[in-house]
Design a protein around this nucleic acid. Structure first.
Lengths: 140, 140
DNA sequence: GTAACTGCAAACGCTTTGCACTCCC
DNA sequence: GGGAGTGCAAAGCGTTTGCAGTTAC
């Protein structure tokens, strides 16, 4: 999704286009990790020194309403934001908390086989796999 | 897991056996839903009027350390506890928040096919499927 | 011009922590 | 008897809310 599509989406949905919204939207759509609100805030406040954490939260909720991102809650109390709405696995390092997307081969067809046995129509999913990443293992 | 096994597990791991720990453990292992700490507290305070929410949290962390339960964080900020450590899908109603376990046929073998493509050894997983349950749909 | 948005700070809710008292072993 | 565990209340922390000032359109 390029800048213009994002602008059009905001307008089409009846929301004003502001520098802050574009910044948060572009940031989230471009990064591969799954940042927390605080991390988004940190990475934007150099370019937008007056942006506030409150605005990050409000914008992130807006992006979620628009279907652009998914919220992933973790038990340490933090929420991470995932802009990749296609079917994928989140690989989560249980030590450092690093999260990455993963797309196994034939994943869609295998997943469909699993879903075909449910007696309802799913509206979405969240699939996490936990492990210890190589960097964390090497520290021991 | 019966009461004696739970008692033995506490002892074997070097923890004292108290009425509160047994109550929380038995409650969590016996129920099919995935309660929050508050829900566990509510269901126990009739029988144990002096039990505190703090003790629920401490006990739940202990049970997690012992590998008896899994913590599921959700973006509404709540944490739910799941005692079913075997491979399963959590079906989550996005309206009322109801969670149930689901065991599709051949799930283990399909899941193994997916995992075989990862380049690391997973330590666990969390699989949620979101939907609108029939009760919530009927309300509209 | 005006309704929506931002930034700030206070409020919120769930979870954790500290500590004196209690109870298991 | 002694150290681990409980219960209470206060503190912590990420998130939400309220509102005066600002900005998109």
């Amino acid at each position: 999704m390029d800048d213009q599509e994002l602008i059009d989406l905001f307008r089409k949905s009846g929301f004003k286009v502001t520098a802050q919204r574009l910044a948060v939207g572009k940031n989230l759509l471009s990064r591969e990790d799954h940042p927390s609100a605080e991390q988004i805030y940190q990475s934007l406040k150099k370019e937008y020194p007056t942006i506030s954490l409150g605005t990050i939260y409000k914008t992130v909720h807006l992006l979620k309403e628009l279907g652009l991102i998914q919220e992933l809650g973790f038990h340490e109390g933090s929420i991470r934001y995932d802009s990749h709405r296609d079917l994928h696995i989140n690989t989560v390092c249980t030590t450092c908390g690093k999260i990455n997307d993963h797309h196994p081969k034939n994943f869609q067809s295998l997943w469909n086989k699993i879903l075909s046995q449910l007696d309802f129509e799913p509206t979405g999913q969240r699939i996490d796999v936990y492990y210890g990443c190589s960097e964390c293992k090497n520290k021991t």
